[in-house]
């Protein structure tokens, strides 16, 4: 049952990843990417990390995909053109490199021998149980899995506090940097509504693009 479910999700995940990479139209690629993100969230559920799955959907589909879509809208013709991939030779070279790496990775994964008293990856076919209380050793893990939001919060503010603060600084820097980069030339004020304005610029730019699209489709 689980294996079938995994197989379905994995197949769809690989297919949507391929679609992202190969789709000519960038918005279609973005749509495939959204499907891929969602299937990764499904895999997180299969791994019993449902908090992470929710975070994945929230951050990737709710934010990253939207930003990417905005980026697509602002940087190209709305109609997909076919200059998004390299030449045939480059395509073959890239494909060969990818297939080669995949071979190496699969070989490595299936032939791993396990270091210093740990089992080889190949022989790990079951996960530590969390439902019955029999698995004493992973009790704290079981508690964490059953209420992951709580466990993540506690860990963030105790064990990973430095990383948490660093992530906060990084996000602030990224926010300021993104605004500073994306803001348009011209009369610029330094108030926090700049982000808003860049969004409005996005809107007006989109309007321009839409107009050009309409004229081109009429022609």
């Amino acid at each position: 049952m689980n294996q079938i479910l995994f197989g379905v999700i994995a197949t769809m995940g690989v297919l949507s990843a391929l679609g992202t990479v190969l789709a000519r139209n960038l918005v279609h690629a973005g749509l495939f990417l959204v499907a891929f993100f969602f299937l990764i969230a499904c895999q997180f559920v299969m791994l019993e990390a449902e908090f992470l799955a929710a975070v994945q959907v929230l951050v990737y589909i709710g934010a990253v995909a939207i930003i990417l879509m905005f980026g697509i809208m602002l940087t190209r013709n709305i109609q997909g053109d076919d200059t998004t991939t390299v030449s045939r030779a480059g395509f073959i070279a890239g494909g060969l490199a990818a297939v080669g790496l995949l071979t190496v990775l699969i070989f490595g994964i299936t032939h791993e021998e396990g270091r210093s008293g740990r089992p080889a990856w190949n022989s790990v076919t079951t996960r530590p149980a969390i439902y019955p209380a029999s698995a004493r050793k992973s009790e704290s893990q079981a508690a964490a899995i059953n209420n992951m939001g709580l466990a993540v919060g506690e860990d963030l503010l105790t064990r990973y506090i430095v990383a948490f603060e660093a992530a906060g600084i990084l996000l602030t820097a990224a926010l300021v940097g993104a605004i500073a980069l994306a803001i348009q030339e011209g009369p610029v004020s330094d108030d926090p509504s700049d982000r808003v304005k860049s969004k409005q610029n996005a809107e007006s730019l989109a309007a321009d693009e839409a107009e050009s699209l309409l004229t081109s489709s009429r022609a």
Binding site: V14, A17, L18, T20, V21, T83, T84, T85, V86, G90, F91, A93, G94, G95, A97, A98, V99, L101, L102, L105
Partner: peptide, 11 residues
């Protein structure tokens, strides 16, 4: 690997 291919192939 698919992602890597995308980085290599896409312009």
């Amino acid at each position: 690997v698919i992602g890597l291919m995308g980085v290599l192939v896409r312009r």
